[in-house]
Design a protein around this nucleic acid. Sequence first.
DNA 1: AGATATCACCCCACTTTTACCCACTACGAT
DNA 2: ATCGTAGTGGGTAAAAGTGGGGTGATATCT
Lengths: 148, 148
Amino acid sequence: MFLGGYANSMDEKGRVNIPADYRDVLRNQHGDCRLIITRDLLDDCLRAYPVARWRDWLAKLEKLPASNRTARRIYRRVVSSAVVLEPDKQGRVLIPASLRQAAQLRKAVHFAGANQTFEIWDSKLWQQETELVDAEDFDPAMLDEFGL
Amino acid sequence: MFLGGYANSMDEKGRVNIPADYRDVLRNQHGDCRLIITRDLLDDCLRAYPVARWRDWLAKLEKLPASNRTARRIYRRVVSSAVVLEPDKQGRVLIPASLRQAAQLRKAVHFAGANQTFEIWDSKLWQQETELVDAEDFDPAMLDEFGL
DNA sequence: AGATATCACCCCACTTTTACCCACTACGAT
DNA sequence: ATCGTAGTGGGTAAAAGTGGGGTGATATCT
């Protein structure tokens, strides 16, 4: 599964190296190096799914009621930004310009493992996100509520 | 399946290039590059179906009770605007003027993958539709409701 | 009916983008 | 030191996307 964080850099063409550890996971545990990358539903980052995981996620999205406008928007945000990518011989993928823009990716990007999937952040945004967590000192009531 | 978003431009004759990825899907997964394009039922955009998918959709529409006025209107909106199109050697289709008008298509158009089908939007309308989503930060109650 | 306009279709030419290949650096292990 | 692997930069051929004719069919007007 996808663990740990990696700081890689994206070149001017929009190519980034997928961390070798993640590629190993894809090759060994999924037997398929292809990735589906989309905008995350909730945060300003991209989320990468192995093919099987993407199928699961898509199945959920397909259940959204088309009659509901917000549901259609949720569906669109995710599906209409998704791309299938396969690392090249160097282990890199080309992130389409639209996705780069959506996640505000610049040169420095950060990979964050999320078990079944992983996230791709602009380093600056990632930093802000994690700084906030450190500063905030989790609300004990919430921790109890979630049994942590 | 149809994924991802593409920004293409329509020329003065009303021709637009179908994204190469979508044409690949049609050729490889359906063995038939023909598309049925109609007005979308719910939004101000066009929706394109591979032949088999159109058959499914049409079968549903045929089940509408003709006794119901709204049902007849729904049927007309979709069926009476449908055209069968096949990309030319350059990969383009000619969108009939009536459909262009219905979806307010101008020069800049946006293709949005929707898994089994794909949507064709005027860029401006698409932008409005998606910008709203970013600002709105989906209602958490709804996300819980749908199990996302 | 004949002349004229309009539209869809096909072909060609150009620009931009992408895919693919090769080369280099940094670092760790042997 | 040397080898192997991860990560980075760049160049080049192919493909995608775009604009603009020409032609033949059909429609319109006189």
